[in-house]
């Protein structure tokens, strides 16, 4: 097996709020191989975005990574000096954000925003940087890139802006791209195009990709591996086909059942009863037990990660093994 591009071990990110500690990310471990796509799935507030920002070192205060290791090519990113971390951001790890209308600075031209990203990491002149920016725009399918470099963000549509953001992420040929729901704000046809291109780019360049989303249908066609997060923890991990075809965790099953499907046309959609629990000083035990049909008294303890089926992991006392 090849060395993973990124390995996260026992990551914990907590927010020290006035009311107490919010454990947004608890004990999260996963790894991504070069050229592979990991889908990080969960509801709003499950800690998936915070996991992404923890990796790139941009958790907003009062949040802080309190424990764990984040190994990029074998080197632990936690504990790096701010300047060392800055040199990695945008260079070896890039990030794409959810809302393309907000990620580009409205008062700076596209060329300014791209050239500065090149020059932050490579000691090259403006002409070279501009050439790289132009090529990156062309690569993400933007027509007449030379002209578009001179435009301002408001002259682009949402889908085009997300392409620009992707082009910026690709500029320095990163080993890892973290995509935080980058297609949520786009309409379906644009979403399809972007998914296709991202998949192609990851495969071609050997870039590892972490795709954070709440949308299982996106993951189904895109990712190789999937990690399902619930209340700050990963509850199930495995290959996309296995997890989506035969989920082991009751939560994963609930998520899959709540996606509208052609196969169940006309039947009422399932929903998971109850609400996601508060992450503020959570009680011990399985966080899903209040909403779980299979829960019993054993679930009052913290379930450990177990591997009832080879190559898969689940955090449940009563996995849905056949």
């Amino acid at each position: 097996m090849t060395e993973p591009a990124l390995r996260v071990e026992d990551l914990r990110t907590h927010f020290h709020a006035r009311q107490g500690i919010v454990k947004a990310v608890e004990d999260v471990s996963f790894s991504v191989a070069p050229g592979k796509i990991l889908g990080l799935v969960g509801e709003s507030g499950s800690g998936k975005s915070v996991t992404g920002f923890s990796i790139i070192g941009l958790v907003d205060p009062p949040g802080r990574v309190v424990a764990g290791r984040i190994l990029l090519g074998g080197r632990n990113l936690l504990g790096l000096a701010p300047e060392e971390m800055r040199r990695i951001r945008g260079n070896r790890i890039a990030m794409i954000f959810q809302d393309p209308m907000m990620t580009l600075n409205p008062v700076l031209r596209i060329d300014t925003q791209m050239i500065e990203a090149v020059q932050a990491h490579a000691d090259v002149g403006r002409a070279t940087a501009r050439e790289r920016a132009r090529n990156a725009l062309a690569r993400v399918g933007i027509a007449s890139p030379d002209e578009r470099l001179l435009a301002y963000p408001h002259q682009f549509s949402g889908g085009m802006r997300q392409r620009v953001a992707i082009a910026i992420a690709l500029l320095n040929k990163p080993e890892l791209i973290i995509a935080d729901e980058p297609t949520t704000a786009l309409d379906v046809t644009i979403q399809g195009q972007i998914l296709f291109e991202m998949q192609k780019l990851a495969r071609e360049s050997g870039t590892a990709l972490i795709w954070i989303t709440h949308d299982l249908s996106v993951i189904a066609g895109l990712a190789d591996e999937i990690s399902v997060m619930y209340a700050g923890r990963i509850v199930e991990q495995g290959s996309v086909d296995q997890v989506l075809d035969a989920p082991l965790h009751p939560y994963t099953q609930g998520l899959i059942a709540s996606v509208p499907s052609r196969n169940r046309r006309g039947e009422p959609l399932q929903q998971i009863p109850g609400m996601t629990p508060s992450l503020l000083d959570p009680a011990p035990g399985c966080a899903f037990r209040e909403r779980c049909a299979r829960a019993d008294s054993t679930c009052a303890d913290d379930p450990p990660m177990s591997s009832p089926v080879a190559g898969r992991q689940v955090r449940c006392f009563h996995p849905l093994t056949a």
Partner: peptide, 29 residues
Amino acid sequence: LQDYVKFARAKGLSEARVVCVHVAKNIMI
């Protein structure tokens, strides 16, 4: 608090560049 500042940081820009270009030009209006 804007995403474009966070994105500028995610690009690995120096803090000086983020503040003096990305923030300053927006507050000038």
